[in-house]
Design a protein around this nucleic acid. Structure first.
Ligand SMILES: NC(=O)c1ccc[n+]([C@@H]2O[C@H](COP(=O)([O-])OP(=O)(O)OC[C@H]3O[C@@H](n4cnc5c(N)ncnc54)[C@H](O)[C@@H]3O)[C@@H](O)[C@H]2O)c1
Ligand SMILES: NC(=O)c1ccc[n+]([C@@H]2O[C@H](COP(=O)([O-])OP(=O)(O)OC[C@H]3O[C@@H](n4cnc5c(N)ncnc54)[C@H](O)[C@@H]3O)[C@@H](O)[C@H]2O)c1
Lengths: 208, 208
DNA sequence: CTACCTTTGTGAACTAATTCACAAGCTCCC
DNA sequence: GGGAGCTTGTGAATTAGTTCACAAAGGTAG
């Protein structure tokens, strides 16, 4: 398949979230124009984004909401359950472990890993805190495909290397460091400093 | 000033973080090649990014680390203190309020706002939980320039409208909704679902 | 069946971002 | 002081992404 731009993937996620809202309101069809308005883009952009994957609409009518959302789910790889572990049972790890948004989207979080003996063995809701020493064993057993890194910056690369070696397929990194992983492993980073700096840049260099 | 691409701003933040590491190691100069290697880009990209703002290096020699990082800080608007409030004293709000990374970057978080009477008045470290009813008054008094939204999705737009009316300059949104704000207000969003979906898309559509 | 309205899907045109490639500037050394 | 060796800064070329614009297709009403 032709390489898909990251911006396209982001927009597909966005369209899916709009479709879910529209579906919840019981509206049966929608149009590229509707989705564009909701997403702050143009209808041509919506149609072009979808066209990379096929043709899902009916001319003159628009798109069937359930059909298009099913298609987008499939395109985004959401047609299956994903098992996720969180590494680092600190402040951000705790928030993530209890975050309902994961489950709602079909991501199963069943464990958090930490190295601190005082945390290991405790239970947060139905999530257990496990010893990070068993991380490799659990990943190799197929318990998780995705790891969320919520550890201090100076442990992050080491843990990334370990989970990669054990066969993880995707990493979502919250530590403020640039990780290096083989390019068959998917990597995304959430970097608060960068987000805040994008804000201060925009405020400071306002066009008016 | 010519409009600067968002990708450029993201890379400037990244370069700054590399410069801070390099500075901490006591290395006095660096080159576009070094920064490119660290950031997974090309030296031409680094030089082009910087060239939008001036010319900071010495041919044949490279860049003075303290000078370039000072320049980047100024470009990114970090030459001053920014006061930030967090709205929503829930799981993610709690993690953010105690996050050292904010303070390290010169962002001062002094209050969290919530509507839940059982939370209002409590104190987390040196951060107080205040009644969201006083949000407008505090913003109008100049207490904050930036608001971080960590409230449920269905309250987020309403709170955004309120803080905008009160004069906030930038919003960092954690709720999984697309907010609408006037375009003189800077807006960034951290959307977990999108990050995870970017991972599952990449894993599912792997090029091999 | 036809005219008319709507909205898709997509090449073509355009705009933005990245990469190339090299002259210019700085240092060092003989 | 001049040549060698680096590395910057930047137009030009290239590549990527977005928007335009319209033919094609579906629906509806008369
Ligand atoms: N708190 C936030 O709001 C926030 C926001 C964005 C990013 N971050 C980043 O997320 C990371 C974690 O932040 P935090 O605030 O939760 O810190 P924290 O100190 O509360 O938690 C870190 C946890 O990681 C554990 N840990 C350390 N080394 C480990 C290892 N080798 N294996 C397993 N666990 C290990 C520690 O025991 C601790 O429980 C940091 O890199 C931070 O910069 C935090
Ligand atoms: N927990 C996570 O890891 C996580 C991650 C990403 C995004 N989010 C998003 O962040 C938001 C908060 O998530 P959470 O897990 O912290 O939820 P939470 O329920 O723990 O916290 C929400 C808080 O907001 C407060 N609140 C509600 N309405 C308010 C109002 N009008 N004014 C002020 N405060 C109000 C509630 O009292 C509560 O304390 C949600 O939109 C969620 O989707 C959460």
């Amino acid at each position: 398949m032709r390489r898909i731009a990251e911006s396209t993937v982001r927009r597909l996620s966005l369209y899916l979230s709009f479709l879910e809202e529209i579906e919840a309101r019981g509206v049966p069809t929608t149009s590229s124009e509707d989705l564009a308005r909701l997403g702050g883009t143009t209808s041509a952009q919506v149609r072009k984004d979808l066209s990379f994957f096929g043709s899902f609409g009916k001319r003159g009518l628009g798109y069937s909401v359930p059909e298009l959302s099913a298609r987008l789910r499939r395109i985004l790889g959401l047609g299956r359950q994903w098992r996720v572990c969180i590494i680092g049972a600190g402040k951000i790890g705790a928030a993530l472990a209890r975050y309902a948004g994961f489950t709602e989207r079909g991501f199963i979080v069943s464990a958090v890993y930490d190295s601190d003996p005082s945390k290991i063995g405790s239970r947060w809701g139905n999530v257990k805190v496990r010893d990070e020493a068993s991380l490799e064993r659990d990943i190799e057993a197929g318990d998780y495909q995705i790891a969320v890194l919520a550890v201090p910056a100076d442990s992050a690369q080491n843990l990334a290397d370990r989970v990669v070696r054990a066969g993880i397929k995707g990493i979502l990194n919250f530590a403020p460091v640039q990780l290096t992983v083989p390019n068959d492993v998917a990597l995304r980073a959430v970097n608060m400093a960068m987000e805040l700096e994008a804000l201060t840049f925009a405020i400071t260099n306002k066009v008016d």
